[in-house]
């Protein structure tokens, strides 16, 4: 029982980083209705910018984190302009494939600039784990969880209580109608991309600094963890992204403990497959899926 609870706690800590990745994903998907496969790679580039700042200037944690976020946002803007803005409406597959080839491009650019592939990434804190009764917590995990929680609250405030948040929700629910309200849809999409990239940048910093190293493969990892967490929670739903991230984290932690490391990803994909077949809307998106189905049937 203690093991099970400890696994859940570990899973939630891990899952909070997945949740941040999924939030970025779902923000982009929500307003664009297109999949950005380059999401992970662009924040991976951000993390390498952080590495560069560290290697060149021996910068402190705050500067490295800032460089990571700025790098992720700049690359995010590049992807938005090239793969999304420039490709006409109704060509979602083209956008997705375009974001994939740009992924390949980003990965190779990183490999050319950083030929050793695996680089040391400085930890944000160096402290011993904290014991709490029978349970223990790593400090970096607690920071990860706390930052994820703060960012989530910030995002909630932004979406629910600001003018921009209203515009963003309007665009993600119906871009055409949003235009009629006088909302500048293109600008909202752009800003959503920037915010999502910033979220991704923060997530990247937290994850990579906890790992202590960075490789170009982080891009692939981040894209797929974010995608799975988003789908588990329900596409386009922010609460869903959070719950999906936490669920993914807990399931992974439990499978590592009870089944072994080699079952970690297998159980995650198995869970995802079950969700898609039996509840494609995920934890929070089922209503929207059913409404869509009902609309299809009506027509």
């Amino acid at each position: 029982m203690v093991d099970f609870i400890q696994n859940c706690l570990d899973g939630i800590m891990l899952g909070s980083s997945y949740a941040l990745l999924a939030i970025g994903f779902t923000l982009i998907f929500g307003v664009m209705r297109r999949l950005n496969l380059s999401y992970g790679p662009s924040i991976m580039v951000g993390a390498f910018v952080g590495t560069l700042v560290y290697l060149e200037f021996k910068a402190n944690a705050v500067a490295i984190a800032a460089a990571t976020v700025v790098g992720a946002v700049i690359v995010g803007i590049y992807v938005e302009r090239l793969c999304f803005r420039a490709i006409r409406r109704g060509a979602a597959v083209a956008s997705m494939v375009s974001s994939f080839v740009i992924w390949m491009q980003l990965e190779e650019i990183v490999t050319v600039v950083f030929p050793d592939r695996t680089y040391f990434f400085p930890p944000m804190v160096t402290a011993d784990p904290i014991d709490l009764g029978p349970f223990f917590f790593k400090v970096e995990n607690i920071v990860m969880f706390a930052v994820a929680a703060v960012m989530t609250v910030l995002l909630h405030w932004l979406l629910q209580y600001t003018r921009f948040g209203l515009a963003l929700r309007a665009v993600s629910e119906n871009p055409r109608a949003a235009l009629f309200m006088g909302i500048n849809v293109g600008a909202v999409m752009f800003l959503a991309f920037v915010i999502a990239s910033a979220f991704g940048g923060v997530a990247a910093y937290l994850i990579v600094s906890a790992d202590g190293q960075i490789t170009p493969l982080f891009g692939l990892w981040a894209t797929f963890k974010g995608l799975i967490a988003m789908m588990l929670g329900g596409m386009g739903s922010i609460p869903g992204a959070i719950l999906g991230g936490l669920l993914l984290g807990v399931v992974e932690a439990q499978s590592i403990w009870y089944l072994g490391t080699e079952y970690r990803d297998l159980s995650a994909y198995f869970l995802l497959f079950l969700f898609l077949v039996f509840r494609p809307g995920g934890l929070m998106g089922q209503l929207a899926v059913e409404r869509e189905l009902a609309a299809t049937r009506r027509v």
């Binding site: 209203l166 309007a170 629910e173 119906n174």
Partner: peptide, 17 residues
């Protein structure tokens, strides 16, 4: 083309964007 996942009040606020 109402905004389906916003409540009535929010839809109206969006109208005054």
């Amino acid at each position: 083309l109402v905004f389906p996942d916003m409540n009535v009040h929010e839809n109206l606020v969006a109208g005054a964007y």
